[in-house]
């Protein structure tokens, strides 16, 4: 039997600054105007698989239930199709809020265990930082190396198909000015004054 849990929330469990911090990120400004109509959830094709619907993620974020908002699967299932954003009657850019939550979850290392999406995001990030371009084959291998190496066998057929049709190679693509690109990214990530 599933253990019975107490579900009440106390004020002490809220992070009163969380909503303000998220709303301060460019593109997330309209967070406070949500009136919980659920258009976002209904417009989203993936919402049927989410642990919290997008509307609930907005509610959690706005009320400062940071833990729930950052640990949920929803933010990682968002494919950035922007359906919610264009349908929202309050013009809340929900996709951007999902990005903001993902960034925060990675920074605070609280993403759900065994979920390969945040791993992919970080592997992608590293690959691009190193080479300036992404090469699908490399990415897939790195991903399964970090999550479940056995799963790669399930991908073998697809990989062979792609090799056969000339759509995949194991040679990692790269730009020439990788050093400059790294400097660029470091400078943009650094807080003001730290960059040099």
């Amino acid at each position: 039997m599933k253990p019975v849990r107490q579900t009440i929330k106390y004020e002490a469990e809220r992070d009163p600054n969380f909503a303000r911090e998220i709303a301060a990120i460019p593109g997330c400004e309209n967070l406070p105007s949500c009136f919980q109509c659920g258009t976002c959830s209904a417009a989203c094709l993936v919402s049927t698989f989410m642990d919290y619907t997008p509307r609930r993620v907005i509610a959690l974020t706005r009320s400062g239930f940071k833990d729930e908002a950052l640990r949920c699967q929803t933010i990682w299932l968002c494919t950035s199709c922007y359906a919610c954003t264009v349908e929202c009657p309050k013009e809340i850019q929900i996709t951007n809020i999902m990005y903001a939550l993902k960034q925060r979850a990675i920074r605070e290392k609280v993403y759900p265990k065994g979920f390969s999406i945040p791993v992919l995001a970080q592997e992608f990030y590293k690959l691009v930082l190193k080479r300036g371009r992404s090469t699908e084959s490399w990415l897939v291998i790195r991903l399964f190396w970090r999550t479940n190496i056995l799963k790669i066998l399930g991908m073998a057929r697809l990989g062979l198909n792609l090799l056969r049709t000339g759509r995949m190679s194991f040679r990692a693509d790269s730009i020439r000015q990788t050093r400059e690109l790294q400097r660029l990214l470091e400078a943009a990530e650094a807080e003001k004054g730290m960059a040099k």
């Binding site: 945040p118 300036g132 992404s134 730009i175 000015q177 990214l185 943009a188 990530e189």
Partner: peptide
Amino acid sequence: DWNCCGATSYSSVHNSAAFALAAR
């Protein structure tokens, strides 16, 4: 010498760097 746009994944990790990457 164009570089990757960052797609959806880069924005999931860092905000301003994602924009800087694309801006290059």
